[in-house]
Nucleic acid binder design. Structure first.
Lengths: 199, 199, 199, 199
DNA sequence: CCATAACCGAGACGGTACGTCGCGTCTTGAT
DNA sequence: ATCAAGACGCGACGTACCGTCTCGGTTATGG
């Protein structure tokens, strides 16, 4: 997402700039929110030239998206031995991410996705897809262990599992708490478990 | 939300302007998305003066929020006799709204909520709260009919029921279909139903 | 050259801004030369918004051209009773103009004329044409008085009369002095005078 | 003017680059004018590195000045036997030069002279001075032949002779034609000739 | 019936951020 | 020491909206 050079020719990029920029963006998100982020502001804060940012990211939205993607990272798809454990691990990374700068930045990111199809595609591929894949794997393991019934609509379950965290972050009608986190996972597990034997 | 004048004296407001503006905003949302909405653009499109818009709404975000709130409207809180029916009715209004201009405008609204606490409060109060209240009532009726078990975390259930629609609209990783709608409602109903008798 | 509004509608232009801008431009030309002129610098110097300049002139070159045209002004085409007197009066306005900010600005103006055909046309029309016309009239009066011979190539004479002032200003190989001014006029008069009777 | 390296060690300069650059600059001047000349553009056009240009000329204006000086060249100071012939020869080289890329480049050169005193000095020395010296020699020969009267202000005559060509080139109010060329020379010769005997 | 007050239209104003372009310098690896 | 490649710092450009303001002109209504 941050343009890379081809061969070994030419003066090499100063890797520190990348780090400084991302740090400044995340700090800006955390402290004042997305709308306060300015290319010029970032550049001045880290004492670099505006040009050096535009050399790496074609526009503000790409820059912020890049920072957010790095922050959200890739959930390690823990294998804890139980569906509940796996899902709680997956969801915990979401909760942690949203508690930091990402929480304030998410709304801005979403807005830019709406006006830049390519950006939206990238975010879906780089962030959402990876996380969903790891959660699908958790369901597959549970299925192999006989913990889940058949005919589940996994995609919908994944939405019901994760969407509430995005929703609460974006609309702020209720906080994301450990209790709420456990409740969501518990409900999903309940939906997925096999029919009781004597039915 | 659209500012009103004081006494009865003076030239009266031209009510048509309100209508024209809202229509133009929704049309703009539908056709080109939130970021393409411009106070000046709206004014030119309907052949009115910019002043006339600022006289009604203090800023662009208020205007757009007003248009969106009106479009989302208040879910009629249908009482169909069954929890599944009630929830499907409630969710159907969401689905319809997101299929129209609101779908494209949601991201922008969310972004402005993130930078304007007062606006966020208003949206939560005027839009989310009303819808949630009607759904809570549906759960209460179901409880009275003995359709649900006790100890349910209704707030979490409401999030799991509605968040997927916001989530899919904002991130676009999967479409909102009738099949998906039914699946979500079915899962929620399943989570809420009483324990099978012979357990 | 500075865009004018149509009817009487809308908030009227603040005429002071025009004056302040022109004064600042001329002062900048005089003190630091053309290349030091900056839209933003002008705006800051007079405490106005950059927008207010762009509202009047579409670009820096238009602004500077406008300032210069005003400064060069229109030579009043004095009628002193003799060709020498008329030409000296006409040339004197040139000399005065080039001694001020215009001298430093002329090179920049010329450069911009070379890259903007429309601007070049305007300058020729508004500045050169007017001055030449008044000098042509002086020759016509001299002709009526019998001071000049027939068959003169007036256009070439006008170039030989005025070009040296532009030339010395632009290339700086020699100063423009009263003595040089008189010499140029004297030579032109000599070229134009009738053949001596007994030839 | 094109910087030279020190000792004999190291990889030798590629002389072709000098030629390619100058050719590209003159071609750029001719086709799109001074403002379209770009260090980077030149380098790309000839497939060389920007560094190779900066190694030879310290800045864009030096490069262009160098190209122009070479193009204007040194007038051969012809000795045709008559003042008219000598001056026509001298002026013809001017006319030819201005008909080519130099014509479009002159304005830009003049602008850079205005903001770089050293450059201005160089141009005056390398270009103007040489040409004027050769024309002064022509006047000296004419004086020796008794073709001119005494007390002439040669410097002013030289300006009146050559300035019109610069002037018309820079302002474009009239073309430079053979007819106009002859007229200018004829007027200068007329100004310079001795007083008619019977006066 | 006519004065007042709020409206409407038009557009200038101050301001912020954007993304682009060109400059001239610096840093690298390879001839 | 050159060459090719390209990052870097810098400064200015012109654009786009924002939200505020100041005009002249319009229209109900209340003294």
């Amino acid at each position: 997402m941050s343009g890379r050079r081809g061969g070994g020719s030419g003066r090499p990029r100063d890797e520190r700039i990348d780090t400084e920029v991302i740090a400044a963006v995340l700090d800006g998100l955390r402290r004042r929110g997305y709308h306060a982020i300015t290319i010029d502001g970032i550049a001045r804060k880290i004492g670099r030239a505006r040009t050096s940012l535009y050399r790496r990211w074609p526009s503000k939205r790409h820059l912020v998206a890049y920072a957010i993607v790095g922050e959200l990272g890739y959930s390690p798809a823990a294998d804890t031995g139980s569906l509940r454990g796996d899902l709680e691990a997956a969801v915990a990374t979401l909760r942690r991410a949203f508690a930091g700068p990402l929480g304030r930045g998410l709304a801005g990111l979403v807005a830019h996705m709406a006006q830049d199809v390519a950006l939206a595609r990238t975010i879906r591929r780089e962030v959402l897809a990876a996380r969903r894949q790891s959660m699908r794997a958790a369901f597959a393991r549970a299925s192999a262990r006989g913990e889940t019934r058949t005919g589940l609509n996994i995609e919908v379950l994944l939405d019901m599992l994760t969407a509430p965290f995005y929703y609460r972050t974006l609309f702020g009608h209720a906080p994301i708490t450990p209790h709420m986190t456990r409740a969501v996972v518990a409900y999903v597990v309940r939906m997925a478990r096999p029919e009781p034997a004597g039915a």
